[in-house]
Design a binder for these strands. Structure first.
Length: 291
DNA sequence: ATGGCTAACAACGTTAGA
């Protein structure tokens, strides 16, 4: 069906003894189920985190994904939009979901993943607390007074850094997801032209930085590939050819707790996936973390 | 501020994405 996975596989020799986490805004898990299974075969993640599954729980393809090697699952979805899922080869000890910004929507799911022989070394944790987050897009107009969607997004981002939803703790943690903010200059194709565009406005990037700092998260992708390297994970559907001008943004993130900062062995942004015939507008991000 | 595109749905136009 698709030609990209072998290319993906070549780029993806796993780091020895590491836990591989893949995060992807899949933009409908039912529409892209087959390609997800194929992606999992080639990229061999231990844990998959999806956003925008766009399906209620009773029509989530749980059985097919269990059969594909991910029997341990935690997911929530809303009809037609939102929706997050954690799919794991390793057992899940606890599941959790939190409500954000006063709404009971499906934008967060957490799981305590039992990492088995990967963890538990001297002073190491035998499990990790994994949060999968889907921050609201925020609509078109970057004015919280005029645009309720933007106000919702700002409130969500404030909560991400307030410690009220995810409390500060010395826990071994990973947070991944579509945070819908491209925080740094080289996270967008044109810093200047996007300063007033939702996803890269100063109020959003400041709030994301505050969230990052508040819980001492390490931005795993930038830790290994610092500025000024240009890194994007999303390209609009609205350009005839996404490669022309490479007009992307880095909206999808992998954050780790400070104890894991030095243990992120490699990260890959799977750009080739943007060329698939039936592609999401986001591409997967893969991180290998030695526990 | 707009265009252009994609997906879901009591679905052939509307809502949402970002």
């Amino acid at each position: 069906m698709e030609t990209a996975p072998p290319y993906v596989a070549r780029a993806l020799a796993p780091a020895a003894g590491a836990l591989r986490i893949l995060t992807w805004n899949i933009n409908s898990v039912r529409l892209r189920l087959k390609v997800l299974v194929k992606l999992a075969k080639y990229a061999r993640p231990d844990v998959i985190c999806l956003q925008e599954t766009k399906t209620p729980d009773d029509s989530f393809p749980a059985k097919a994904l269990a059969k594909a090697g991910f029997p341990h699952q935690a997911f929530h979805g809303d009809k037609g939009y939102n929706g997050v899922a954690i799919l794991s080869r390793h057992p899940i000890a606890r599941r959790d979901r939190r409500f954000w910004a006063g709404k009971e929507d499906s934008r967060h799911v957490a799981a305590e993943i039992e990492v088995g022989e990967l963890g538990g070394g001297p002073g190491r944790s035998a499990s990790i607390e994994l949060h999968n987050v889907y921050v609201p897009a925020g609509g078109d107009v970057p004015d919280p007074g005029a645009n309720p969607k933007f106000a919702h997004k700002l409130k969500f981002l404030e909560e991400l850094g307030s410690g009220t939803v995810i409390a500060p703790a010395k826990t071994t943690r990973v947070l991944v997801g579509d945070l819908n903010v491209a925080p740094y200059e080289n996270d967008v194709w044109s810093h200047k032209q996007l300063l007033k565009v939702v996803s890269h406005t100063p109020v959003e990037t400041d709030l994301l930085q505050r969230a990052l700092a508040s819980l001492d998260w390490v931005d795993a992708v930038r830790h290994l590939h610092p500025e000024p390297q240009r890194i994007y994970t999303w390209w609009s559907y609205r350009n005839r050819d996404w490669k022309v001008g490479d007009r992307g943004r880095r909206l999808d993130h992998v954050w780790v707790s400070p104890d894991l900062g030095a243990r992120v062995k490699q990260v890959h942004v799977l750009r080739p996936c943007r060329d698939w015939r039936l592609c999401s507008d986001h591409v997967p991000v893969v991180a290998d973390i030695a526990l």
